[in-house]
């Protein structure tokens, strides 16, 4: 699919999403399909959240995230970069070129770099090592904005799609992986900055919300899956595709911290902590976010 065509499809589906979201908000005129899901949604305590969940279920069957997966898949096998090679030899932890199931087993420790790497960090590494891209260039504008879609976002979405309906199994076999979990836990609980916030301030208790946004308790086994589930995610606010790298970045912004380095070890360790907490759950693939 050409990028112009893709963009048009995305824009259209974005528009459809907005319209559908508005329709879903209006209780008087719910979309037909919504009735099927109404019972489950009614169980949720908050009406706005319930509306979103209802809408979410409808959209999940035909997720706009799949368009980004397609784009990433094409990018993966295309010869690109200064070295003009594809990413088909990229080792995501399960051997060179093995993409299936790799996403749900990251972050993991990679002996070739001596680092903990989440999916995006590893993909950036492959783009640099195999294709000859410059890391500094990739880190310059790493997040989707307007019609701009960074390459790693499409690639991560593709890779994540190749773990759809697989069990989350972030490894803890190696001492480096166990240390990363511990370090991630420390980062998660570290209060600092002008507002004394840590990740745990908002995400350390069950059943809390900011405004109408439900907050997963990422320290608990039951809720932690919500940090994994739905990412990479097509965010209805703005109609952009975002990965966990973006989510962590924007969380630290709202934590009133300075900016974390893109694809840094701090983020890899934090994602290890949350990923391991979510182990055992089924990953549904790239999804939709409010």
């Amino acid at each position: 699919m050409s990028s112009i065509k893709l963009r048009a499809v995305v824009a259209l589906s974005g528009l459809a999403l907005v319209c559908a979201a508005q329709a879903a908000q209006k209780e008087s005129a719910p979309p037909k399909k919504a009735a099927v899901h109404a019972k489950k949604a009614a169980a949720a305590k908050d009406p706005v959240a319930a509306d979103f969940e209802k809408f979410h279920e409808i959209m999940e069957e035909d997720s706009p995230a799949e368009l980004f997966e397609a784009k990433g898949a094409e990018m993966w096998k295309t010869k690109r970069g200064p070295k003009h090679v594809s990413l088909e030899k990229c080792n995501l932890g399960l051997g060179p070129g093995v993409v299936k199931g790799a996403y749900v087993q990251m972050p993991r420790y990679f002996a070739d770099t001596g680092q903990m790497m989440d999916a995006e960090r590893r993909i950036v590494y492959c783009m640099v090592k195999l294709q000859g891209f410059k890391e500094a260039d990739l880190a310059k504008k790493p997040f989707s904005k307007g019609s701009y879609l960074p390459d790693p976002v499409a690639l991560v979405t593709y890779v994540a799609g190749q773990s759809r309906n697989m069990k989350i199994a972030v490894p803890q076999k190696l001492p480096q992986e166990r240390a990363a979990y511990k370090l991630g836990e420390e980062i998660f609980n570290y209060r600092a900055g002008p507002w004394d916030f840590s990740c745990a301030t908002c995400h350390g208790e069950d059943n809390k919300r900011i405004r109408t946004q439900n907050l997963p308790n990422l320290a608990s086994k039951v809720d932690a899956v919500r940090a994994f589930q739905g990412w990479p995610g097509y965010r209805m606010t703005g109609g952009l595709m975002h990965t966990l790298q973006w989510r962590m970045n924007d969380c630290f912004r709202q934590q009133r911290f300075p900016e974390p380095g893109y694809a840094s070890e701090t983020i890899a360790d934090l994602l290890t902590y949350m990923g391991v907490n979510a182990n055992g759950y089924l990953y549904k693939g790239p999804g939709i976010k409010r």
Partner: peptide, 9 residues
């Protein structure tokens, strides 16, 4: 963890 954050931010 603290020194890592100071390095990475």
């Amino acid at each position: 963890a603290i020194s890592m954050m100071k390095r990475d931010f």
